[in-house]
């Protein structure tokens, strides 16, 4: 499959007028996120990787988005959403419980830890979790559905779409200050936005996307 925004790299705008210093600093810091577990334990970290692999599966990339590292970094920094459901512990603690519970569920259903399951088996468990049908005591009273939509899957999705590679993938214009946008109507594109492959003409899109600054 050709990519929808072939040749578009949002990072090509980094030194242009669409990025201010603060944005450059923030995104540079994110791209420099240390690899490996810091908040999680080694095994927890591997489980997060195996979760991210199912929740935001990536095409083969030379430099894949380090979803687990980004989740780890956020929890390490004590990131909170500003609310939690009655009976839910703060995010870090909830994450640890959830990872343990997933292993417990995986052991009960398949006799192996979550990260060692096949992709279909992991998907199967995650479907049950999403529908709130997991109720092993290891959840310690947390609703598996809430943990899925408001914590685990959410944090993973946020981490993935915090990364410029994902921004390029969906053809988003990316950071925009001081320069914003001029052409905003139907089917209108500024020369500094991603061009979509139209009528199978990838070459035309690539040509335009190469000129994005």
């Amino acid at each position: 499959m050709t990519e929808r925004y072939s040749g578009y790299d949002v990072m090509s705008k980094r030194n242009g007028p669409s990025w201010n210093d603060k944005t450059r600093q923030v995104v540079d810091d994110r791209l420099a996120t240390p690899r490996g577990p810091r908040f999680f334990s080694e095994t927890e970290y591997r489980t997060v990787e195996s979760l991210a692999d199912r929740i935001v599966p990536q095409p083969h990339r030379v430099d894949p988005i380090p979803v687990a590292d980004l989740v780890d970094a956020r929890l390490l920094a004590g990131g909170q959403d500003g609310f939690r459901h009655l009976g839910m512990p703060p995010p870090g603690e909830a994450w640890r419980r959830a990872l343990a519970a997933l292993d417990a569920e995986a052991q009960a259903a398949h006799g192996a830890n979550f990260r060692h399951l096949s992709s279909p088996d992991r998907d199967g468990l995650l479907h049950c979790m999403h529908e709130g049908r997991l109720d092993h005591p290891a959840w310690q009273g947390m609703s598996s559905q809430l943990v899925f939509t408001q914590l685990v899957a959410k944090d993973i999705v946020f981490a993935y779409y915090a990364h410029p590679t994902a921004w390029s993938e969906i053809g988003w214009g990316g950071p925009a200050s001081p320069r914003g946008y001029v052409r905003t109507g139907y089917d209108r594109r500024d020369p500094w936005e991603a061009a979509e492959v139209k009528d199978g003409d990838a070459a035309a899109a690539i040509r335009k996307n190469r000129r994005v600054r």
């Binding site: 007028p17 200050s177 001081p178 320069r179 914003g180 946008y181």
Partner: peptide, 10 residues
């Protein structure tokens, strides 16, 4: 305008 002349393309 925001960015002034440096942001001429907008």
């Amino acid at each position: 305008m925001m960015g002034g002349w440096r942001n001429w393309s907008q």
